[in-house]
Design a protein around this nucleic acid. Structure first.
Length: 388
DNA sequence: AGTATCACTA
């Protein structure tokens, strides 16, 4: 009894160190605990798995599973749900699937959290149509196991619909969520508005935003950012600033989303320099999305050299970074530069957007370099096999 | 004491 309550205390310590990203301290506490006869349990390890997958790597998280085995502690459903979410965070879809299989083999029955997590993995990592089909299949599967889809399941399926451009169906799900009382917070509304704004359906988006504002759901940070983005994209920068003021009066501080949205708004108005200055002054110039935006906007403002300067300075790059540069290089006919960049993207293990790849091929073909296309394709193939 | 959904880039 004494040791059980000590373990509970240990877990509280571990959880707070993990929350503060002090993983080393958490490990020290475990060692000290063991010395005093306080043994970690499955909760301790689950906490570690989450922290390692969030702040370190999937491998670090997965290695906790080995430590559990050594300590003869059986992983539970939360262990596997956490590992699957961790694999998704690091874009490792096949690991997600393997873990799901492993869980079944161990006789651990997936719960609604497992399905929601797996569905989200597919949403994030697969092509929109595949993600949508998988989500539909999972709905059937979980129903067959007697599980009931919850608000998170609905939100995820709805996102799959929007992403695969099934707008009507997505909106139907939203109305169903209203009926079920699943719109007690801003999640569903922001999902709908975000998807509509992204596809330039500003009018429709405004309608749903209005519906949200007319409920008594308090606006949270994400809702404010959604609203500000709606105004920016609709070309109403003053309105956006009005909301910003209101938000700040209510005690919310603008975050990196807000800043990127505002910066985009400036670009949209044609003030790329102002956007650049805002980024530097507001101090979010290490934000990947903001930098990607600037790379793209500089290119479009005929400042490709400046875009390259930003590109070179970036500590992290993703498919957006490469794809927008490649697209813009193709547009101005710099096909050699574009294909070089395409290769370095593939070699860095970054997934290239198909549209960027095809832009390079088309660009080469149109400038009469048919042979180069063939060569580039085989080099990509080679690079891909080397990465995997 | 430990797990899953919203907002910014193309």
């Amino acid at each position: 009894m004494v040791s059980r309550s000590s373990t509970r205390f240990l877990n509280i310590c571990i959880a707070s160190f993990c929350k503060a990203k002090h993983l080393q301290r958490a490990e020290t506490v475990i060692i000290d605990g063991v010395r005093l006869g306080v043994l970690p349990d499955v909760v301790t390890y689950n906490t570690l798995i989450n922290a390692y997958s969030r702040f370190v790597s999937f491998d670090a998280a997965y290695s906790v599973l080995d430590r559990m085995k050594e300590a003869s502690i059986k992983p539970d459903i939360i262990t596997y749900n956490s590992l699957i979410a961790g694999a998704m965070r690091h874009c490792l879809l096949s690991n997600c699937m393997d873990l799901f299989e492993e869980m079944l083999e161990l006789g651990i029955k997936p719960d609604i959290w497992s399905y929601n997590t797996l569905m989200h993995c597919f949403f994030k990592l697969e092509r929109p149509d595949d993600a949508y089909r998988t989500a539909r299949w999972m709905l059937k599967e979980l129903g067959a196991s007697g599980l009931v889809p919850n608000v998170i399941t609905y939100t995820t399926v709805m996102r799959c619909c929007f992403r695969s451009r099934r707008f009507e169906q997505g909106l139907e799900i939203f109305e169903e969520m209203i009926d079920k009382g699943y719109t007690f917070d801003g999640f569903a509304y922001c999902t709908v508005v975000g998807a509509l704004v992204k596809t330039c359906r500003i009018e429709e988006a405004s309608h749903y935003m209005e519906r949200m504002v007319n409920t008594d759901i308090g606006l949270d940070m994400a809702s404010y950012n959604t609203l500000i983005n709606l105004y920016c994209k609709g070309g109403k920068l003053e309105m956006a600033h009005g909301v910003l003021d209101k938000m700040e009066k209510e005690g919310f501080e603008r975050d990196e989303y807000t800043n990127t949205i505002l910066m985009n708004g400036l670009c949209e108005e044609g003030d790329v320099e102002g956007a650049m200055e805002y980024m530097n002054v507001a101090g979010f110039n290490s934000n990947l999305v903001a930098l990607n935006t600037m790379v793209d906007r500089c290119c479009k403002a005929d400042q490709i050299d400046y875009a390259f300067k930003i590109f070179d300075s970036m500590h992290m790059r993703d498919s957006f970074t490469y794809s927008s540069l490649i697209h813009n290089l193709c547009k101005v006919g710099r096909f050699r530069c574009a294909s070089k960049l395409l290769l370095s993207c593939v070699r860095s293990g970054t997934r290239i957007l198909p549209s960027a790849k095809h832009a390079v091929f088309d660009c080469l073909r149109h400038s009469g370099h048919q042979r180069e296309v063939k060569r580039l394709k085989s080099e990509i193939k080679l690079a891909l096999s080397a990465v995997v």
